[in-house]
């Protein structure tokens, strides 16, 4: 320590910029590839393998301190950095946007420490880390979606006791969650759960799909890609492997429904088959825009672009995807 500090004390700089300029690297000397040490990455990968082997089951892992506060995607970062390799291309989105500060910082961390290419194009990426959304473009079997998870257990809504909930999962005892849905319908006339919609994975484990909108829940079912859900604060991760049955809990006569946007279309690209968010313009009027900015840009160039345009066959990918034999330009959402 003292050896390295001594020479710096002898040099004087005129400004912070001068200090930064004087460094011939980015301060990454001594850090492992992809920031995390090899043992940590190996442990995370082992936990992911276990999670893949038991779809929907929450697997504990040794969540490390990261250079940002827990709750800011530290679980997702650890999962992403553990599976990224130097030939991969990485995309990070935060609520559909590639350009949020947090997304940009995570992308830069991976670029700097893991030497990966980064992109904002869903179809170009190998690994996508995301907060609260699943991209509109259909993912393929070569891709992995890493979701940041604030709350790992769907049952915590009905019982704060983790011990009791672990027992419920062990015995597939989800009566309390069903009562929650029942009471939801009593109160609202339909199931009114905005996000973190309780979802059965492979007919066995009840899963919290993270705070994605209901719109994205159907994309989990029988997808071609792997989904990894990772929580830094709770130090647990879980997964939905490719082609797994994922079914949102609902009653036979009160079915699961995605968000409805009426006649609204994106004011930039005109899409009516994407997840829209409201924005208020300078004139005080509410307008709708695509939440997935990357796909919105593509649609602005080509309004007819299908969500599975890059795939060789028709892919079912959430609401609004053209089903086989239907109009290839996209349906009306339901």
């Amino acid at each position: 320590m003292t050896d390295t500090e001594t020479p710096r004390a002898e040099t004087s700089y005129e400004s912070v910029d001068a200090v930064l300029d004087s460094l011939d690297d980015e301060g990454l000397d001594g850090y492992s590839y992809a920031y995390l040490d090899e043992h940590t990455k190996r442990e995370v990968r082992r936990s992911i393998l276990k999670a893949v082997a038991i779809p929907g089951h929450q697997v504990p892992y040794a969540s490390r301190p990261m250079p940002l506060a827990r709750g800011w995607g530290t679980g997702g970062i650890q999962a992403s950095l553990s599976i990224l390799g130097p030939t991969d291309t990485f995309k990070v989105i935060d609520q559909g946007s590639d350009e949020s500060v947090n997304a940009a910082n995570i992308r830069r961390l991976a670029r700097d420490t893991a030497a990966v290419e980064t992109t904002t194009d869903t179809t170009d990426s190998d690994v996508i880390q995301t907060r609260h959304r699943i991209p509109e473009e259909a993912l393929s079997e070569d891709q992995i979606l890493v979701l940041q998870v604030p709350v790992t257990d769907a049952l915590r809504k009905v019982d704060p006791s983790d011990a009791a909930n672990r027992r419920r999962h062990a015995h597939k005892n989800y009566g309390k969650m069903w009562v929650h849905l029942y009471e939801n319908v009593v109160e609202w006339g339909e199931i009114n759960i905005a996000s973190r919609y309780p979802t059965m994975v492979a007919g066995r484990y009840l899963m919290d799909p993270s705070p994605i909108p209901r719109w994205d829940v159907p994309k989990l079912d029988d997808a071609d890609n792997l989904f990894v859900f990772a929580a830094g604060r709770e130090a647990r991760l879980y997964a939905v492997p490719p082609n797994t049955d994922v079914e949102p809990l609902a009653f036979e006569d009160r079915e699961f429904q995605v968000e409805r946007f009426g006649d609204a279309t994106c004011q930039f690209c005109g899409s009516d088959d994407t997840y829209l968010v409201e924005i208020e313009g300078d004139d005080g009027e509410t307008r709708y825009v695509c939440n997935d900015t990357s796909f919105c840009e593509k649609r602005q160039d080509d309004p007819e672009l299908a969500k599975d345009h890059h795939r060789e066959r028709d892919v079912s990918w959430g609401p609004g995807t053209p089903s086989e034999g239907a109009d290839a330009t996209g349906g009306d959402g339901t």
Binding site: N173, Y174, Y182, E183, V186, F251, E252, D253
Partner: peptide
């Protein structure tokens, strides 16, 4: 009983736990 659930919910829990999935039937 779970006193935070509605009275009906407490009764419904038994039905739901034994596999009832039709809201109106419950």
């Amino acid at each position: 009983l779970d006193l935070d659930f509605s009275g009906g919910g407490n009764v419904a829990e038994k039905l739901l736990a034994s596999g009832w999935r039709n809201y109106e039937d419950v």
